[in-house]
Design a protein around this nucleic acid. Structure first.
Lengths: 132, 132
DNA sequence: CGGGATCCTGCCCGATACTG
DNA sequence: CAGTATCGGGCAGGATCCCG
């Protein structure tokens, strides 16, 4: 019996595709740079090392939890380094790595595209909403 | 009484910053291009118009709901157009607008960065996980 | 064929409190 | 100062069924 229902075939395709996506660098790292806070934090470190509290003030609206979590995650990915200086009180500095610095032009490209098209997009949204 | 607690001051700062972020084109549109499916769908339309079902097959693992939802949202933003041809059965084509096509180089920049650094990042993750 | 409507679940993230 | 720990609400998003 070669019978395989359509549903089974779809499931199989989906699994295969999920595996493909999981292995796809672009897709993984798109998730990385596009989470809610990564861009803001990386940009905050663009001009050089900064202490935890300085980053917190730059990205004023972030919660302590998400700041620490995102910093850790960026450190894990080798996009920033974390340096602890055992003074009293403790001092912790974060700094972009080379990989992190090479991310800056990408973010700038996004920013450029955004600033070029934001006006048209806002207008498009309004028109769309008025129509429906 | 000029008294304002630290908590109140923080809240005020957060609100102001949230308003700033809400008004920031880069931040808004970063959310736009970086959601789970936008990049895949836009890329799927890079070579020309496609029907709903074709896009669905290209981005095999997406659910019907998210495909429709994302397409609608992209249409609202003026990144793609939606053309209904009342044949039997119905035919619906999606196509990138100029704004949408100008998004392609940005996505390519992300892809290039990703492919250049994926290896180092994977290694960094492993090292980080083994250490802790 | 190309959707809409509904239900339901995980997990993202904010708020809060405590530590070295 | 720079975190960790815990709790809980909200909502993105998957599954399913129905429709013109």
């Amino acid at each position: 019996m070669p019978t395989m229902t359509a549903a089974e075939r779809r499931d199989e395709a989906r699994e295969a595709y999920d595996a493909f996506l999981a292995a796809c660098p672009s897709h993984q790292l798109l998730g990385r740079i596009s989470d809610k806070w990564t861009a803001l934090i990386v940009t905050s470190l663009a001009d050089g090392p900064r202490r935890y509290g300085e980053v917190a003030r730059t990205v004023a609206s972030i919660s302590q939890k998400m700041l620490t979590q995102t910093l850790r995650s960026l450190e894990r990915d080798g996009i920033i380094t974390r340096t602890v200086t055992p003074e009293v009180p403790v001092r912790v500095d974060y700094e972009l790595t080379e990989t992190g610095r090479e991310l800056l032009p990408v973010l700038r490209a996004i920013k450029d595209w955004a600033e070029t098209h934001i006006e048209g997009i806002m207008a498009s949204r309004e028109a769309y909403d008025r129509r429906s």
